[in-house]
Amino acid sequence: MNTNKHLPLTETTFYILTALLSPGHGYYVMQRVEELSLGRVRIAAGTMYGAIENLLLQNLIAPVPSPDKRRKLYQTTELGRHVLSSEAERLRYLVSIADRFGL
């Protein structure tokens, strides 16, 4: 699976994909991202909706059946997972370089 064209991920995308490893609707993702980033990253509603549309187009997330008619549920796809782990690997390497130079 070629994940290179998706890399590097923006911070927002990284958080959204991570938050959607378990299924959730739009507002759930907004809350989860805030939680994961310790309140540092707050995605506004309009930005969130655009991001979801974008990730759906790129097949990084997919809709899953929702019990709530008014709220769609999304989940990170297999491709999304691969992209996430490639990104994590890339970041780990960057951090190891930073460590080596004593930053």
Binding site: Y27, M30, A45, G46, Y49, R70, R71
Partner: peptide, 22 residues
């Protein structure tokens, strides 16, 4: 915001998400 929707559920989902967010 600028968006148009093909189906009612899409529109409903959009408005609900914004309402959830205040």
């Amino acid at each position: 915001d600028v968006h148009k929707f093909d189906t009612d559920p899409d529109f409903e989902n959009y408005r609900t998400m914004f309402l959830d967010a205040g």
